[in-house]
Amino acid sequence: MSEGALLSFESVHAVYGKKIRALKGVSLEVRAGEIVALIGNNGAGKTTLMKTASGLMVPESGRVLFEGRDLAGLAPHRVSRLGLCLVPEGRRIFPRLTVMENLEMGAYARAGAPELAREFDHVLTLFPVLGRRRGQLAGTLSGGEQQMLAMGRALMSAPKLLMLDEPSMGLAPVVVDVIFDIIARVNKEGVTILLVEQNARRALKAAARAYVLETGEIAASGEAARLLGDASVQKAYLGL
């Protein structure tokens, strides 16, 4: 693996139970400052890969390194405190907590840090709607607002690398535009991003590099622009 990778997978295998082999020797890396897209069909193993990185799932073999440190044996709350934060599939906001309390939960491990107030302001500037809804129970938000809250909550942990699992799923096109704008903006501010998307075209346009996952294996990888023009990728994922 090259120097300077923020996150790297080294031939990672992951299984559910004994039989379902969801990742079969995946190697990839995400370098500091990049947006990397991970595309692939339903069931390819994208969510599994992110669960493995975040400590929700333990790899059967292989290593996951963050800033050169082996994450083996670290529970999710430890991984998140290192600065590797997952915005999970389906958003998973806390429905019976208010919007503000959800954001405070994002900053849970940093309570009392002096820069927190600035962080709140920053998240509320990125997502003004969250400020207007601050006292509302998060479960009453619309799908798009919940996605924004999930991202805002993750940003409150001041992550170095943000993993987004299907952030545009089920959202109206205008909201998808907002989400992708924010992704670009957050990345410019220095947050590295690993993006899983069903909307492959959108993801490849946003990313610098990408990996294509097929039934648990990396089938292609490279510059996102090149993959966008690649005939087999176009055929399989872009509907051309």
Binding site: R81, P88, R92, I93, L97
Partner: peptide
């Protein structure tokens, strides 16, 4: 309360 809503998500937010 966060754990009662979603134990796994609370872990992802750094809650032990």
């Amino acid at each position: 309360r966060a754990c009662a809503d979603d134990l796994e998500a609370a872990g992802l937010m750094g809650v032990d």
